[in-house]
Amino acid sequence: MHALLDALVIAILALNLYALGVSRIRAVINAVALQGVLLGGLLFLVHATLDVRGALLVIATLVIKGVVIPAFLVHAMREAEIQHEVTPFVSFMSSMLLGAVGTGLAVGFAHTLPLAEPHTNALLVPASFATVWTGFLLLITRKKAIMQVLGYLLLENGIFLFGLLLLEAMPFMVEIGVLLDLFTGVFVMGIIIHHISREFSSISTENLAELKE
């Protein structure tokens, strides 16, 4: 059980690095989708007893994070005729190394936190920080608006990971609410991307600087 949990978390971490190092947008979307599916799996594992509420949550996570949002993003890519290449400000190699350094620091930092006994050795907390950090990196270092959406998604995945620790305490509605928020956010971003691309015939966020006048 514990080993499987670890394996899933490590797969999530590996996907973080993959998302930072890969140059095709479709690959990043796939990575984020797969991460969503893994999160659903984690939720399933962490839940000691599977009641209706838990089952609903697992299914909602799987569907929304793993299928709906990625499908929507792929659709948006096709609609806005976005080119397949990620255009980074910082080279893939550097962002990958930064991601790795962040992950290492997260492991160190998680140790200094006053966590409850069952969580002190779990990988969940460092993985959560590392995923948030990866999301930030994508947000900061990538030009195209669609990558910002993916960055937000990763960020949310990280927060979701942390939330797994508080599963017992968190009301059902809050989690569902977060998922819905996310969905709406992605939806709105999708529309924005569409508009940016129509307005500037590219979706580079650099163009937005022209709006400051």
């Binding site: 190699m93 990958m96 992950t103």
Partner: peptide, 19 residues
């Protein structure tokens, strides 16, 4: 990029043991 990823993978494996 892929080789550095290989370094990071086993490096992370080591970090897991050292933490």
């Amino acid at each position: 990029l892929l080789i550095v990823a290989a370094c990071l993978l086993s490096g992370f494996g080591l970090v897991l043991l050292l933490r």
